[in-house]
Simulated assay, not measured.
Amino acid sequence: MNASAYRAGHVAVIGRPNVGKSTLVNALVGAKISITSARPQTTRHRLLGIATFPEGQLVLVDTPGLHRDQGKSTATAMHRWMNRAARGALEGVDAAMLVVRAGHWDEADAFAYDVLRGAGLPVVLVVNQVDRVKDKAALLPYLAQVSEGREFAAVHPVSALKRKGLEALVKDVLALLPGQQPLYGEDEITDKSQRFLAGEMVREQLMRQLGEELPYATTVEIERFETDGALLRIGAVIWVERDGQKAIVIGKGGERLREIGARARQQMEKLFGSKVFLQTWVRVREGWSDDEAALRAFGYHD
C-alpha cells in the first residue's frame, strides 16, 4: 500500500442507547474493549477503540447513548455526565457513524442525526442487527424512508454481532478520513489502561446479572492492580447506594458475588492474556450517582 494512500482519523460512534454501538466497536477492533449488555446506557465512558487495517486506521470514539437533556430537575448527575461525554465525542473527529437498529427509526434517532449534521460531520448510517430482520424485503423501503430528506455519506446494513457487512463499511468510512500516517501503533487497541478495563469487566457482569434489579445503582473502583510475575492481582470494590442493594449483589451465601467475580476474571484473562487473581468487595455510598464529587472520585471525569 502506497504510504500516501493511507488514511487515518477519528470517527465518532453515535446513536441512541442500546443499538449496539459497543458491539460494533469491538467487532471492528477485533477485541473486546467496550462492555456490552442488553441494558440501555451500559457504556458510561468515552473510550477509543483503535482498528488498524492495511489501508488505514479508524480511531473509533465509543460513547454513552445520546439522548435529550432531561434538565437538572429530573436527570441525575450521572445522566448529565453521560450526555456530556456523548456530545464531547464530536470534538475533533473527522466523521461519524450513526448506529440505528434495523427496522426502527424514532425521534431519538432523528435527534442523534440532527446533532451530527449540526456539528458539520459527514455521517455514515450503520443499520445494525439486520440478522434479526426476518423479512429482508422490508429493509429496502425502510432504508428509503430513513434516507429521505437526510444526507448520508453512505448507508450500510450490518450485523456487528455476527461481523457481517463490516468490510464495505470500513472502506467507506476510511474514504472520509484524511490521508496521513497511523495515529497509534499497530498493536494498540484502546487508549484506556488495563486497570480501567478491569473495572469495566466487573461492571459488565453487574449489568448482565443484575440489570433488572439494579440497572444503574452500581459502579466499580479498582483499588489494587499489581503484577506478580505472570499473575495479575486485582482488587475491585463494587459501590452501591443502599444496604439492600449490597445484599442483592452479594446474594445468598455470597453466591452471586462469586459468580460475578468468576465471569469477570475469565474476561480479564482473555483480554490481558495472563492469569488473574481477582478479589471483590461490596461497599455502600449513599446517593453516589447524583453526587458530582463521588463521580469524580470514581473516575467520571469530563
Rank of each mutant, 00 (worst) to 15 (best):
A12C: 08
Q245E: 15
T219H: 04
A75H: 00
R101E: 14
E188L: 13
V11T: 02
K171V: 12
K270W: 01
G185H: 10
I50N: 07
M97A: 09
D109V: 11
G49T: 03
L295D: 09
A262R: 14
A236L: 01
R84C: 02
F196E: 02
H67N: 06
Q266I: 12
A75I: 08
R150C: 08
V130G: 06
V130S: 08
L271T: 10
G65M: 02
R39S: 08
F53A: 11
G235K: 08
M82R: 03
R233D: 10
I35A: 09
R87V: 08
R117E: 01
V282F: 03
N18D: 05
K275Y: 09
P64I: 11
R7I: 15
E259H: 10
L183R: 07
G30I: 14
L169W: 06
L47E: 13
L116M: 05
D131F: 06
E212P: 00
E269H: 03
W105S: 04
H156G: 05
Q245P: 00
L28V: 09
D290F: 07
D243M: 10
H104T: 15
A175P: 00
Q267I: 06
L66M: 04
H104Y: 06
V13R: 01
S193A: 12
V146M: 08
L176T: 03
S73F: 15
P178S: 08
E148M: 07
L214C: 12
V93D: 03
L210C: 10
V123C: 05
S34A: 14
F298P: 04
Y113F: 11
A102Q: 05
R84E: 10
V13K: 03
A154F: 11
V93G: 00
A110F: 07
A144V: 13
F272P: 04
E55W: 13
M268Q: 01
E91M: 00
D114W: 02
L140T: 14
I234L: 09
P215A: 07
D172Y: 04
E241N: 10
W288N: 01
S73A: 15
L161Y: 06
L174M: 06
I35D: 10
L140Q: 12
P64G: 09
R163A: 14
A96P: 00
N2P: 15
A293S: 07
V133K: 03
V115D: 06
N26L: 03
G56W: 04
S34W: 01
S37I: 11
E91I: 00
R265C: 12
L28D: 05
G179S: 09
P141K: 00
Q70H: 08
L257Y: 11
G287V: 05
L161E: 11
A119M: 01
T218R: 00
V124G: 01
P122H: 07
V202C: 12
A137T: 15
H67T: 15
D114L: 09
Y6W: 08
G251C: 05
L143T: 06
L177Y: 06
E241P: 06
W288K: 01
R163T: 15
V127D: 07
G251K: 05
M78F: 02
A160R: 01
G56H: 10
G199R: 06
R233H: 14
S159K: 00
A38R: 03
P40H: 02
P17V: 07
